[in-house]
Amino acid sequence: MSALKPGDKFPDGVVFSYIPYVEEQADIKSCGIPINYNASKEWADKKVVVFALPGAFTPVCSAAHVPGYIENLPKLKEKGVDVVAVLAYNDAYVMSAWGKANGVKGDDILFLSDPEAKFSKSIGWADEEGRTYRYAIVIDHGKVIYAQKERAKNVLEVSKAEAVLEAI
């Protein structure tokens, strides 16, 4: 499959790994049980912003990318966004801990694992080592309305929350 572009249908069969947030396991040292998150099904009738990045707890990702979405979450919701999700190749345990480290509770932002960068590879947006490129995709009821990949690894321009807000 080639890179997604506006007008494309979001692919069928896209499944990520995910640990749902529960208050009883809010401590960063608590582990939940990973479950499959069928994005194709869950997002079919919703407006979704999914942003991907090279890895949890990495400099640009932790200092700017995720905080930008946390800060702009109310504005995204005002624009009709139902789901905001961050995606990386890290396993579901790491993604869950990263969400907790960022103070994200409930399903405000889903911290999804793309094991082995399977989805990112399927759209050509992963590097040779299997790490996810930095990108953002907006899906509106199953149709891609925005899809942009950053021009370089540590650049944060087209996938940051502000750029997505301007585009939708």
Rank of each mutant, 00 (worst) to 15 (best):
Ala126Ser: 11
Phe119Gln: 02
Pro67Ile: 14
Leu87Cys: 15
Val83Asp: 06
Ala167Pro: 04
Phe57Asn: 15
Tyr135Asn: 02
Leu4Gln: 04
Phe119Gly: 03
Gly68Leu: 11
Lys75Pro: 07
Glu166Ala: 15
Tyr21Ile: 00
Lys5His: 02
Arg131Val: 06
Ile139Ser: 08
Asn38Asp: 15
Ala44Glu: 06
Phe57Glu: 10
Cys61Ala: 12
Gly7His: 03
Lys77Ser: 07
Ser30Val: 00
Val50Glu: 02
Val60Phe: 07
Ser113Tyr: 09
Val22Pro: 00
Ile28Ala: 03
Leu156Ser: 05
Thr58Tyr: 08
Phe57Pro: 10
Glu24Leu: 10
Tyr133Pro: 00
Ala161Leu: 04
Val81Cys: 09
Ser40Cys: 03
Trp43Leu: 01
Ala64Ile: 11
Leu53Gly: 05
Lys118Ala: 15
Ala88Gly: 08
Ala101Phe: 14
Lys75Arg: 13
Ala152Val: 08
Tyr133Val: 01
Ser120Cys: 14
Leu110Ile: 08
Ser2Ala: 14
Leu156Phe: 00
Ile123Ala: 06
Asn72Arg: 14
Leu156Trp: 03
Arg134Ser: 06
Cys31Lys: 14
Tyr146Ala: 09
Tyr21Met: 06
Ala3Ser: 13
Tyr69Ser: 12
Pro59Ser: 15
Asp91Thr: 12
Ile123Phe: 00
Gln25Ile: 04
Ser30Trp: 03
Phe57Arg: 13
Val155Cys: 06
Ile70Ala: 13
Lys77Glu: 14
Val22Lys: 14
Ala92Ile: 06
Asp140Arg: 03
Trp98Met: 10
Ala92Leu: 05
Trp98Gln: 05
Pro11Arg: 04
Phe16Cys: 01
Glu162Tyr: 05
Val158His: 10
Val48Phe: 13
Glu129Pro: 01
Asp127Phe: 04
Asp108Phe: 05
Arg131Pro: 00
Ile123Arg: 04
Val48Asn: 04
Ala26Asp: 13
Ala117Pro: 10
Ser96Cys: 14
Lys100Gln: 12
Asp127Ile: 01
Val104Cys: 12
Cys31Met: 13
Trp125Val: 05
Ser40Pro: 05
Ala161Trp: 02
Ser2Thr: 14
Gly55Gln: 08
